[in-house]
Design a protein around this nucleic acid. Structure first.
Length: 158
DNA sequence: GCCAACGTTGGC
DNA sequence: GCCAACGTTGGC
């Protein structure tokens, strides 16, 4: 099983928004970056996803989601009215892809970006690199467990 | 709202 | 294929 981190701006689509969807499930549309797209295509059903709130008052991982459908064409790229429209992507030759994720569990408390910067286990995370803009990234099992442990308060907080 | 860092575009 | 200009991301 693989682990991932996916960013979303809560003003656009929050972890609570995902919870409110039918089946607590939605498609992850709008990724328009090749590296992030390629990571999504590597996702497999059952992979665990850290849901990260970006570009907001308190950037943080707020909970866990799960991949329930593997990569398929992002149809919002074909819709001229969509902000994610891309004329270069067609149904015959889709350029962009998305996966479906299901809300799984909210953290007891958010694990903030500031806090993550102080965690030794996370020193290699792309998320913490200066200027990192990658919106979908792999997370190692160790990094995943370290973050979930914090979020679930299974470990005394400093 | 600012602005540094990044990815993409397009002229050459 | 280079690289300046541009638009976007996202922390602060």
């Amino acid at each position: 099983m693989q682990h991932w981190l996916m960013k979303s701006e809560p003003a656009a689509f929050s972890f609570d928004d995902l919870h409110a969807r039918p089946g607590r499930t939605d498609h992850w549309d709008g990724v328009r970056n090749y590296q992030a797209r390629n990571f999504m295509r590597q996702m497999r059903r059952g992979d665990q996803v850290l849901f990260y709130h970006s570009n907001c008052e308190q950037p943080a991982v707020v909970g866990i989601a799960e991949v329930v459908r593997e990569a398929y064409p992002d149809f919002t790229a074909w819709d001229p009215k969509s902000v994610h429209f891309d004329a270069a992507s067609t149904p015959d030759a889709p350029r962009w892809f998305m996966v479906d994720v299901r809300w799984k569990q909210a953290f007891a408390r958010a694990v903030t970006l500031t806090e993550m910067k102080g965690m030794r286990e996370l020193s290699e995370m792309p998320l913490l690199r200066r200027g990192s803009r990658l919106s979908v990234m792999p997370v190692t099992g160790e990094q995943y467990r370290a973050i979930v442990d914090r979020g679930m308060k299974r470990r005394p907080t400093e």
